[in-house]
């Protein structure tokens, strides 16, 4: 394990890939890995790309990779696709549009299934991003599934969130409904050669006006990803946003908030594990009989278990 982690930190793709798998499948070594990896992370610019299916996320990601590359950056990509809720299987096809970078030693692309996580972004997405960060990728690009909760959840992981809209897809209504205006740092109107692109851009700007003054006013950019038009500007705005976060009070607030969430998340997980163990021990047919006959209450049982946990941990 030590060796594997060391090789990954040197940037070896095979080792990085293996670490991500171990973390993703929640193997017993996952925690050891993350403890070792964590100190090396915190250097990468983590970017989330979100937007409805068909918005052109993968095509845009492909072009964004190329632009960062031309700036001399190394890039890690995590592309999330939905897993089947019935079989747990998944077809992960996002990287298809990025395959020109497959043989580039400075680019690492990893596909992940949602594996039952409701938000579409699992805990392992964040851990995979941390691994890529620690293993030397300057930029980590996360492409979300683009439906449901994932559009909001991405803000918990990414420094910069790019929201992709397409004219004529009813995205405007979508935005207002989901309330994701607040989380996007950059708005990208893709397929801008279609009718209505200007209208979408104007509407977004008007909604941003309604939100009032904020330290970072999200730019609204137009792209035609397929023809690589407007992508350079997207990349330079992303970089500008990273600079803003580094220098501003807002950036510090966000970093602290995220670090706080990371601690809370681990706490919750640890406690949940303890609770599970203790509850397993306590469970018995007799207890259920008592509960059913109302001779005791779930509150009393919980209180007792909590007591046991506390004394055990204090010993």
């Amino acid at each position: 394990m030590e060796k594997l982690i060391a090789r990954a930190l040197e940037g070896d793709h095979r080792s990085i890939a293996r670490l991500i798998s171990l973390v993703e499948s929640e193997s017993p070594q996952a925690e050891i890995i993350m403890r070792k990896i964590y100190p090396h992370s915190g250097k990468a610019h983590i970017i989330g790309l979100t937007g409805s299916p068909g918005a052109g996320k993968s095509t845009l990601a492909d072009k964004i990779i190329a632009h960062f590359k031309s700036l001399g950056k190394t890039v890690g990509v995590i592309a999330v696709d939905p897993s089947s809720p019935f079989t747990g299987g998944a077809i992960l096809g996002d990287r298809l549009r990025m395959q020109q970078h497959a043989v580039d030693p400075d680019v690492f692309i990893r596909s992940m299934g949602t594996r039952g996580s409701l938000g579409g972004l699992s805990r392992s997405t964040q851990e995979a991003a941390l691994i890529l960060d620690a293993c030397g990728k300057d930029v980590v690009l996360i492409e979300t599934v683009g439906v449901g909760q994932s559009e909001v959840d991405i803000v918990k992981i990414a420094d910069t969130v790019g929201l992709i809209l397409v004219p004529g897809m009813g995205d405007d209504i979508q935005i207002m409904k989901a309330g994701i205006m607040e989380i996007a740092d950059i708005f990208i109107v893709n397929k801008a050669d279609r009718d209505g692109a200007d209208r979408v851009a104007t509407e977004v700007n008007m909604m941003l006006d309604l939100l009032g003054m904020r330290p970072w006013r999200p730019p609204v950019l137009k792209t035609i990803a397929e023809r690589n038009e407007g992508v350079e500007e997207v990349v330079s705005e992303m970089t500008r946003h990273a600079d803003f976060l580094r220098r501003s009070e807002e950036g510090r607030r966000r970093r602290w908030q995220r670090l706080g969430m990371e601690v809370e998340e681990i706490l919750r997980r640890e406690i949940a594990a303890m609770v599970e163990v203790a509850w397993e021990k306590e469970k018995s047919p007799e207890l259920f009989e008592l509960l059913a006959a109302r001779k005791t209450t779930p509150y009393e049982v919980a209180e007792r278990i909590l007591g046991t946990i506390l004394t055990e941990t204090c010993d």
Binding site: T59, I91, G93, L96, R97, E226, R227
Partner: peptide, 10 residues
């Protein structure tokens, strides 16, 4: 003209 890339749907 550029090159086409397939639109995969599975």
């Amino acid at each position: 003209f550029g090159e086409y890339r397939e639109n995969i749907v599975l």
